[in-house]
Design a protein around this nucleic acid. Sequence first.
DNA 1: ATTTTTACTTGCATTTTGCAAGTAACTTGT
DNA 2: ACAAGTTACTTGCAAAATGCAAGTAAAAAT
Lengths: 166, 166
Amino acid sequence: MPGKKASPKRRSGCPLNASVEILGDRWSLLIIRDMMLRGFRTYKEFLGSYEGIATNILADRLRKLIAHGIITTEKNPSDGRKVIYSLTPKGIDLAPVLTEMVLWAAAHEDTANQALVHAMRKDKEKFTSAIRQRWAETARAPKRFRSLRSQRLRDVDARSARRRQH
Amino acid sequence: MPGKKASPKRRSGCPLNASVEILGDRWSLLIIRDMMLRGFRTYKEFLGSYEGIATNILADRLRKLIAHGIITTEKNPSDGRKVIYSLTPKGIDLAPVLTEMVLWAAAHEDTANQALVHAMRKDKEKFTSAIRQRWAETARAPKRFRSLRSQRLRDVDARSARRRQH
DNA sequence: ATTTTTACTTGCATTTTGCAAGTAACTTGT
DNA sequence: ACAAGTTACTTGCAAAATGCAAGTAAAAAT
């Protein structure tokens, strides 16, 4: 397998350890969520997400996700300021991880977003393949991300407006 | 639902955010792994695990996992020094999360433990229910944890001996 | 030409992590 | 009974990661 490279200093060869070293922080998976479920593709969108990531942390996490081959960047040809972030196949493959984490929390913690949870619980396979499908579409036509609306993270959708002003 | 309590200050109601706030660090899921897959139940065993967690961090993580209802403690009646840690149903329900994280890393990173990965990939349902089953057994008879041997994390099993001496 | 937008970087305080060295309660060996 | 482990931690301190506010450069809009 050509793409598989071992990180120079990993604590162990255990696959779970690899996952935890790559994704085990408070922000990386939320960025993936925003891309996968909300169709976010720009720095500004990530910054505006409800949980309120700090700009330096966001830059750092995006850099690391790129380094791990989970996302890629390209310039927006119609607007030279914008950088478009996309999920790679490796990134899209995180859908099942995300799904299980959502279902676990929904089952055991007090959380919002019942619509999303129901959709996931009803048919995991269908849900993850829908994400895959939708992402493949938007890769060609980056604008349309409408079809997921009804299943989106409502509380996050509600107001992305809680960002610190300066 | 009686058991579901919201953490006082959570960044958002999104279930993924809840998971990430509870499990999103470099150690918590490794402790769960050691309990679930290796049958570890004491502080000393966790300390000796291959990745080499620091003792103060371990104490902190165990405290937090208890606070979140993922594990519980009881004293070993035959040896008053020992504390026995056990997974709660909430903790056992992390098996699918763990499984997907293992499969993701196995697919995209250079990792060891092909036996475990094959077993998981072949039949996820079977694997997680086997863990559930096995844990239910060991809850009654804490000693026997033999049946998982063949599927265990080999590199972790290999030598738990790399602990810093002082 | 000036202002605004976008994607960042920089500096600094706070928090978390990691390492080494204790310590208290209990058990084991003599 | 008593010294010597064992076990499950705690404490102190240095290093790294995080979070906040402010700044900057390039491109676009006015």
